[in-house]
Design a protein around this nucleic acid. Structure first.
Lengths: 190, 190
DNA sequence: TTCAAAACTTACTGGTTAGTAAGTTTTTCT
DNA sequence: AGAAAAACTTACTAACCAGTAAGTTTTGAA
């Protein structure tokens, strides 16, 4: 009963995700994906009925991914700093691959997104913000972190520094991103 | 010799700027502009040969605007805090009009921009960063501001907080932007 | 091995895109 | 008033877009 070849579907998700992080939602087409796969655009439509469905699936993947990350953060015995580092590392990888984060990408195109996608974007942001906030609170309790604003606010500051930091890095160079990363860590490490 | 009716040209610039801040560079067309003006799309092409030229002109306008702002900041006798507030106010206006900042918008689409535009984006970012950095240094010298990182780094932090802050505000609401604004002012006011 | 579902291709649609060439109206200056 | 430049419209193109319907090949399981 289960579909047999999930490879193509996963490949479409992977390529679509890359294109969104690299060029944005409104700057890629089904043809771009099918060319990479050496298939016809109708093949992409077979797996994802429309662009809306594809983007929704991509965001669902991120939601699953971050939910999984949240569970692992509870199981793995890491310091709060290590947890925060793990999160920041995701952004450093983006800078090296000439991409921006998915949240920043869809946030910039937010007014052009279909409703089913908008709700997922909101969910994703709240999820990620929650994870960072939780880690910050944990670090504060342990004495690893020091900050005076509410944890949610500090999480907002970190997320905006990182999201816009990778956007800036594509233009003015990685050095600026590195400065931002060090500075925001300095802020919470006190 | 000078062109006589600059109204339409200015209107195109104004509408184009709004569309970019609202929907992004890849999500609007010449038809969108001409519809607002109740003209044909060829009329837009008369004033700006192509989309590339239009975007370049829009960025040139911002460059001029910020150069002007830089001069005024020297002339007007304002405290460094008032100058910073004036800069931040620009972002608060964006939040209320459901827009993101032009820099964040084009930064997200950077990989899809023609070369002539890319150079202008770089110039604009450096210009704005320079203005903020200058204001921060002045405030520090006067004892208005207190921060330990280099002024350029602090300027980067503020710019990323604001740029991504307005992006976030469209999704999770203005409250988050307000929190960010207050927190970043708290950071420099010590 | 056969047969049905899965995974495609072929071939097409209607709409939108940026852009152009040629002609018309409007404005401004003399 | 008349000429010339400016500011348009008309009418079109070629490319691309998302999406679909119908037909073909591939695959795996009974």
């Amino acid at each position: 009963m289960a579909p047999r070849n999930q490879d193509t579907k996963q490949e479409i998700l992977r390529i679509g995700t890359d294109l969104i992080k690299r060029y944005g939602y409104n700057a890629f087409s089904y043809a771009d994906i099918s060319k990479v796969l050496q298939m016809k655009n109708a093949a992409v439509h077979y797996h994802f009925r429309g662009k809306e469905d594809l983007l929704a699936a991509i965001l669902d993947q991120y939601l699953d991914d971050y939910i999984q990350m949240g569970k692992q953060l509870q199981v793995l015995r890491l310091t709060a700093l290590q947890k925060l580092d793990q999160f920041i590392e995701r952004y450093s990888v983006l800078v090296d691959s000439n991409c921006i984060c998915i949240i920043g990408s869809v946030a910039s195109d937010y007014n052009t997104l279909p409703e089913s996608v908008k709700t997922r974007v909101t969910e994703l942001i709240e999820l990620v913000l929650g994870l960072v906030e939780k880690t910050l609170l944990e670090g504060k309790k342990k004495g690893e972190f020091h900050f005076t604003v509410p944890a949610r606010t500090q999480a907002l500051l970190i997320m905006t520094n990182l999201a816009a930091g990778v956007q800036l890095a594509r233009i003015s160079g990685k050095q600026d991103y590195v400065k931002i990363r060090k500075a925001l860590l300095g802020q919470v490490k006190g």
